[in-house]
């Protein structure tokens, strides 16, 4: 009679294999556990990466998700934590050379989810420090992508846009904010992206001005800052 640890080790191992398990794990009854565990992981990934699912279709997404699960099974039971490296995994698959924007779209789905679940900003107004600093709102997420993935991502959020989808093949910036409760998504340019990057850690205003001016000497800082605060991306501490 195997001890509890040996039983669980063998059972867990059999759940991850596909029909190559020991005879005691080949029954239809065992298949219920194997199918439920696999389906739970696949559906969690589908919920976290809805745009990738739309792009590759349900059957292909299921297969890719099962492959990812074999490569990186969940380490814990909170499934909204699972999939941080799904975009990286996609980028490493040879077949995605035919869909060069796919990994970037996955990255955007993940950033949306991070914004959706991020901490809430404290509701009490802060006392302004004697040296005000600019910081990112707790739910701000942004990225600069080598492909027009943000245009593709946004089009799939709005079915009426899909018919006209023919983006210029250029790099794009993406911003997700959650100032008003729901996540807002927008395409951003390199100048605005450089402002967000300069605020990754809270920084005094002169430092941020200098960083943005160094990257984009032609940029109009007050306008960029206004936009940052109005969009909910930035807070003044």
């Amino acid at each position: 009679m195997p001890d509890l640890a040996s039983f669980q080790r063998d059972f867990a191992s059999a759940l991850m294999t596909d029909g190559q398990a020991a005879p005691s794990f080949r029954s239809q009854a065992f298949a219920v556990y194997r199918n439920t565990s696999a389906r739970g992981v696949v559906e969690a990934l589908r919920a976290s990466f809805p745009t990738v699912d739309m792009l590759v279709g349900e059957d292909m997404f299921t297969q890719v998700a099962l492959d990812f699960r074999r490569d990186q099974p969940p380490a814990g039971p909170v499934l909204s934590d699972y999939g941080a490296d799904f975009a990286g995994y996609l980028a490493r698959q040879p077949w995605t050379c035919e869909l060069p924007y796919l990994a970037d779209v996955a990255r955007l789905d993940w950033l949306w989810l991070e914004s959706f679940l991020a901490p809430d900003e404290p509701t009490m107004p802060r006392e302004l420090a004697s040296t005000p600093r600019i910081a990112l709102h707790a739910a701000t997420r942004f990225a600069w992508l080598p492909t027009p993935a943000m245009t593709i991502w946004q089009a799939h959020r709005d079915p009426w846009e899909m018919g006209q989808l023919d983006p210029d093949w250029i790099a794009e910036g993406a911003l997700f904010t959650r100032a008003g409760g729901c996540v807002s998504a927008e395409l951003i340019d390199a100048g605005f992206h450089s402002l967000l990057l300069a605020c990754t850690a809270p920084a005094p205003v002169p430092e941020v001005v200098a960083a943005v001016a160094a990257a984009f000497p032609q940029s109009h800082f007050p306008q960029l800052l206004n936009r940052g605060v109005a969009s909910g991306a930035l807070v003044i501490l």
Partner: peptide, 14 residues
Amino acid sequence: RYGDVSFPDLLPFP
């Protein structure tokens, strides 16, 4: 859960 792997299911034991 066994080791580093978690399963979204409720698994049996003797």
